[in-house]
Structure formats: C-alpha cells, structure tokens
Nucleic acid binder design. Structure first.
Lengths: 233, 233
DNA sequence: CAGTGGTCTAGACCACCCT
DNA sequence: GGGTGGTCTAGACCACTGT
C-alpha cells in the first residue's frame, strides 16, 4: 500500500510496487496489469498519478501500453539514443561505385486508413564484372504527401532524388531501430549468400524538415555490408 | 501556433515547435527554453499539456529539466548515450538503476609490440531481486597511456571514471563497426538466454580529446538491449 | 522574496477494442 | 455498450533556485 506520510512521491511508491510484482512473477511477460481505473480505486490516487508511474515504467521498457486494451508486461528492450549515424547513403558514393536497384514490388496499398506506395528494392553496387547486392529495402511512402509518386521508375532514379526534385521535400531525420535477424530462404537468394549467418535489419521512420512522416522503411543489410559508425561523444 | 482543429494532439504540435526551434538554432545547447508558466500563456494550454510535451523531449534526450531553474536544451547528453561509450555507468544511473559489473578477466597482454591491460566484463543492471545482464565488454587499454591502470578493481569502479579522475583523460570520439553475430554457449550463459537468436556486436576504437587511442573495445549486446537511433541526414 | 519545476487532485471527453 | 488507454482542463501545494 501507499504511504502518504512518506516523503517519497506516490508515483515512485507505485512504480516500486508494480516493478516488484513483475519481478516476483505476479505479472508475467505479456500479462495485463490492473487497469488504470482499477488502480485508482485500489490505491486511492488519481489517474494522473497512476499514469505518471506507468509512463516511467514504459520508458524503462518494463511495460507496453495498448489503447483500448490495457497495459502489459514487456520484459525486453533497453533503449538507447544514438546520433550521427551514417549508413548506406554515404557508403556507395564513398566507394566510387555505381549504385544499382532492382524493383521487386511497386504498388499501392491501404494501411491504417491511408494510401501508401509500397516499394521493395534490392540495392547494390556494380562494376565491370559483377553486381554485388547489398540491401533489401522496403519503403512505404504516403500518397497524401507524394501524390502520383507511384508513376516513377525507381530502378532508374532514387526515391530521395524524386522526393527532392519533384516534391521539394527533403528527409532530415530518421528514427531507426536496429536489430539482428536470421535471413530466410528468399533473403538468401536475393542477397546471394548460402551460410546460416545473421544479418542486420533497420526499421524506422524518415521525417522531413516540417516534421512530416515521409517514409516508413525497413532495410535488411546483407553479409557484404560493413556498418561503420563514426561518432563524437 | 497550435491548431485546435487539427486531430494532432496539442502536445505533439508543441513538441514539433520546440524541436524545430532547437534544430533551427533558436535555442542553442545549454539555453533555457521558455518556462512552463510562460508557455501556458503563450500557447493557451494547461501545464499538464506543456509538461507532457517536454517529458517526451526529455526522453528523446533533447531537453534536461532542472528543478527551480528551468528546462534546458541538452544536445550533449544525447551524445553521451552512444553505444555505451562514455558510459554504461552514466547511462544506467540516469535510468535510476544500479549498474553492476562482473570482471571475467583482467591481465596484461602484449600485442602489436605494445603492452595492454585486457579487461573482460559482463555488465548489467540490478535491483533488489534480480540482475539483468546486458553486455559483454572486452577492452584493451594501452599501458603506455595509462600506466598502472591494471591495479584498479573494475568491478567496483568504471573504466572511464578511473581514466577521468586518475589520468585526466576523457573519451571524445569512437570509431565503431557494428555486426550481427550468433552467440556461442558461453555467451548464452553469461547473458542468460537460451534461444538461437542473433545478437549485435560493436568493435572499435575510442579516442581522447588529443586524438590518442585510449581503448580498443568489443561489446556484445544481449537480447535485452534494443537500439533506437535518432539521426540527422 | 519571486520564479522555477515536481507532485497531485478531480474531473471531462475522446478513440480504440471486444463482445 | 462497457471497458480500456489517450488527451486535456483548472486548479492546488510543495521543493528548489536565485537575488
């Protein structure tokens, strides 16, 4: 129970209770914890206080909130923010190679009540003798922001160059999440490798100067990619 | 200004305004942004809404809150969070957790004709009931730059705090390479997981202000780590 | 002292999910 | 429809910081 004479803020006391219940196994991975309304009655505090406690636990990665359903235990994810990340963009140009793209899929889909162009490409570099496929790139581009963008041929022109030239929109930020994955059979064929080795995958959102979401992107980096990061602390 | 007819939540609109002001340089590193009371008048919303907007920006690492003084732009703090360099210890402490380190190996080796302290640690966070192991860190520290550093007990003090306090040397840059790996049996035991899932590994060099190489490091990130990246293109 | 952020109350209406 | 979280209002009192 909460102690109102304690100097410790109520929401901190509440956090400790919830955290301990999770660690002790009262609520297990994927379980729903009591609803905010229930906790209001149970602990005799307002919803604001409950939500402050929960909000911090979400940031810790211990809980996940789902609208209309509830708050759930989520025993993974410790988050880190990273700046100054330079990835594939510079990679090819720095190597003085010719970038190539093969379009695997390009069509309009509806998702979350919005229309998007879905674009799946294999991207790589080419020299006289061979083509080295490096990444599989899946993009969702909102048609509301880029009407008619599905008419372009993205095996010949890059997505960002079209956005810049035809729509005067420039990507300025990206929110990405990196995780290691095992490629499936299809991935192995596209990126031309055989071994059972793990790959890197980045998922995220690309944002323009005026904070519009201009692309949802998933990139699978093949075994020939090196991820170099230069960073200032 | 805020648009009350927009379906976008007011606090999100507010975040965008503040973020843009920071990015565009209206508020610079270390500046105080307008006080919450001022913003209430300025935007005609309650303090709760203001604080929700600010709270998220704090979690993004863009602002820092100081009681009794104000809310300040904080681009430096974000950069400190890069891949644990500059400190796992700082990072974890900020999250109100207790960092723990277990030293697996600490000895002097000779490599490339130089003497190094080799330090292998498992690192994690601890609360009363459980310890969550997050990373396996292997560091090579040149004895020529840090003579006698092998005498310290790194299960009790962090490597960077010793470098800072005893040797007046601060890490400022890192050159890193990220790759996915499969953990071996030993890795699974140390990071306490069972499944055959791929992990992330970072290899690199940490460099001080005067461009001296102060550490060669390899970090294996366990399945509980989740990487979020915020980047400017 | 006045100004700042930190905590908390007691409501309200909405969007979403499931049945 | 009834339950859930998401957003927002209009206050209150406190702790901390400076002058």
């Amino acid at each position: 129970m909460l102690n109102r004479n304690d100097y410790t803020p109520l929401y901190v006391q509440l956090q400790r209770i919830i955290r301990q219940d999770i660690i002790r196994g009262k609520y297990k991975e994927g379980d729903m914890i009591p609803s905010e309304a229930q906790m209001m009655k149970l602990y005799g505090v307002t919803r604001t206080t409950i939500r402050k406690a929960i909000s911090d636990l979400v940031n810790e990665g211990l809980l996940r909130q789902v609208q209309g359903k509830g708050n759930f235990v989520c025993l993974r994810e410790v988050k880190q923010n990273i700046w100054n990340f330079s990835g594939f963009t510079d990679y090819v140009t720095k190597k003085n190679e010719t970038p190539v793209s093969k379009v695997l899929e390009q069509r309009i889909i509806t998702q979350d009540g919005r229309e998007w162009m879905k674009l799946v490409r294999v991207r790589g570099i080419k020299n006289k003798l061979a083509t080295l496929w490096l990444t599989i790139d899946t993009s969702l581009v909102p048609l509301s922001v880029f009407p008619g963008i599905d008419q372009y041929d993205f095996s010949r022109q890059s997505l960002y160059s079209i956005m810049k030239q035809q729509y005067k929109t420039v990507p300025t930020h990206a929110l990405l999440q990196i995780e290691p994955i095992m490629g499936d059979k299809n991935t192995k064929e596209l990126l031309a490798y055989e071994e059972d080795i793990p790959l890197l995958q980045a998922n995220g959102t690309v944002i323009s100067e005026d904070e519009a979401e201009i692309e949802q992107v998933q990139v699978i980096y093949g075994p020939h990619m090196n991820f170099k990061i230069v960073t200032s602390i």
